[in-house]
Computed example of a mutant assay.
Amino acid sequence: MRIILLGPPGAGKGTQSARIVERFGIPQLSTGDMLRAAVAAGTPVGIEAKSLMDSGALVPDEIVVGIVADRIEEPDARNGFILDGFPRTVAQATALAAMLARKGLPLDAVVEFKVDEAALLGRIAKRAAETLARGEPVRKDDTPEVFKTRLDAYRTLTAPLSAHYAGTGLLRPIDGMAPIDEVTRHLEELLAPYQAVSA
Rank of each mutant, 00 (worst) to 15 (best):
M1N: 01
R2Y: 03
I3T: 08
G7W: 00
P8N: 09
P9W: 00
G12S: 06
K13M: 04
G14F: 10
G14M: 09
T15Y: 05
T15D: 02
S17N: 08
A18N: 11
I20K: 02
I20H: 01
F24R: 04
I26A: 04
Q28R: 15
T31E: 01
T31C: 03
M34Q: 10
L35P: 00
A37T: 08
V39Y: 01
V39K: 05
V39T: 07
A41L: 07
T43F: 03
V45T: 09
K50R: 14
S51M: 12
M53F: 04
D54I: 05
D54M: 07
V59I: 15
P60A: 06
D61W: 00
G66D: 01
V68G: 00
V68W: 05
A69H: 09
D70K: 11
R71T: 11
I72H: 02
I72C: 01
E74S: 07
P75G: 09
D76R: 09
A77K: 05
R78L: 10
F81I: 00
L83P: 03
D84E: 11
G85N: 06
T89M: 07
T89H: 07
V90P: 05
V90D: 04
A95R: 14
A95N: 08
A97I: 09
A98F: 05
A98R: 15
M99G: 02
L100T: 01
A101D: 15
K103M: 12
K103I: 02
P106M: 08
P106W: 09
L107H: 05
A109Y: 07
V110E: 01
E112Q: 14
F113K: 06
K114N: 10
K114W: 02
V115D: 04
A119D: 13
A119P: 00
L121M: 14
A125S: 12
A129Y: 12
A129Q: 15
T131L: 13
R134M: 12
R134C: 08
R134T: 13
R134I: 07
G135K: 08
E136R: 14
K140S: 15
T143L: 09
T143Y: 05
E145A: 15
V146D: 01
V146N: 10
F147Q: 04
F147E: 01
R150H: 10
R150N: 06
R150W: 09
L151E: 04
T156A: 14
L157R: 13
T158I: 08
T158G: 05
A159D: 12
S162V: 15
H164V: 06
Y165W: 11
A166H: 10
A166P: 02
G167E: 10
T168R: 13
G169Q: 08
G169R: 09
L170A: 10
R172N: 04
R172H: 11
P173M: 06
D175A: 08
M177R: 00
A178E: 09
I180T: 13
E182A: 15
R185Y: 08
R185F: 05
H186L: 11
L187Q: 03
E188S: 12
E188V: 14
L191R: 02
A192P: 05
P193L: 11
V197T: 14
S198C: 12
A199T: 13
